[in-house]
Amino acid sequence: MRSARDFCGRRFNFGTLETIHTESSRKCTAESFERLACSGGRKVAELWQDADGLFGLFGSSATERPMIRPTRSSETNVRVTM
């Protein structure tokens, strides 16, 4: 059995018994997710959690590009451009 699906203007064909990766789930605290988001230039905009704090969904948004400031020892050797 074969199946074909259209998505965003593209056609995807699936063969018999072909596997499809549909989810990547990670376990992390709100704090560790915030650090991860910040490392990728994003910030946590929303956090939804169940009453027991066992399940959560994070909404993130892009942050402005951080200002890179040279350290004191290299101030004369580094030029910062934006």
Rank of each mutant, 00 (worst) to 15 (best):
S24K: 11
R2G: 02
R72E: 13
E64N: 03
M82L: 03
S61Q: 10
I20M: 09
G59K: 10
I20C: 11
C38L: 14
R79D: 00
F55C: 05
H21C: 08
L54N: 08
F55W: 06
R65C: 04
E46Y: 07
R65L: 13
I68Y: 03
L17A: 10
R5H: 14
T22C: 09
D52C: 03
N77Y: 04
F14W: 02
R42M: 15
F7P: 00
E23R: 15
P66T: 04
E31H: 11
F33V: 02
R26M: 08
G40V: 12
F7W: 14
P70M: 04
D52Q: 14
R11E: 08
V44Q: 00
M67C: 04
S32A: 10
R2D: 12
D52P: 00
R72V: 10
L17E: 13
R72W: 04
R5N: 12
V44W: 02
S3A: 14
A51N: 06
G9Q: 06
M1F: 05
L17V: 01
E46N: 11
D52F: 01
S74G: 00
R10T: 08
T63M: 15
K43S: 13
R2I: 09
R69W: 05
M1K: 07
A45G: 01
P66L: 11
A51R: 05
G41M: 03
E18M: 12
S73P: 04
S25E: 09
S73R: 07
G59C: 06
A30L: 05
E18K: 11
R72S: 10
F58P: 01
N13T: 13
V80E: 04
F55N: 09
A4P: 00
R72I: 10
E46W: 08
T29W: 01
R65W: 03
G56V: 01
F33Q: 03
C38K: 11
L36S: 06
M67T: 11
S61M: 09
P70V: 01
G15R: 12
R79K: 11
S25T: 15
S3F: 13
F33E: 00
D50T: 12
C8V: 00
T71C: 06
G15Y: 06
M1R: 07
G59Q: 09
E23S: 15
I20V: 15
S24D: 14
H21P: 02
C28L: 13
V80G: 01
R10K: 15
S32L: 05
Q49V: 11
W48G: 02
T81F: 03
R26I: 12
W48A: 10
A51F: 01
T16Y: 12
T71S: 12
E75L: 07
T63K: 14
S60D: 08
S74M: 05
S74W: 01
L47W: 03
G9Y: 07
I20E: 11
T19I: 02
E46K: 10
G53W: 08
L47M: 13
R35I: 02
A62N: 01
E18V: 05
T63F: 04
L57A: 12
M67F: 06
T22L: 12
F14T: 07
R2V: 09
C28G: 08
R5M: 15
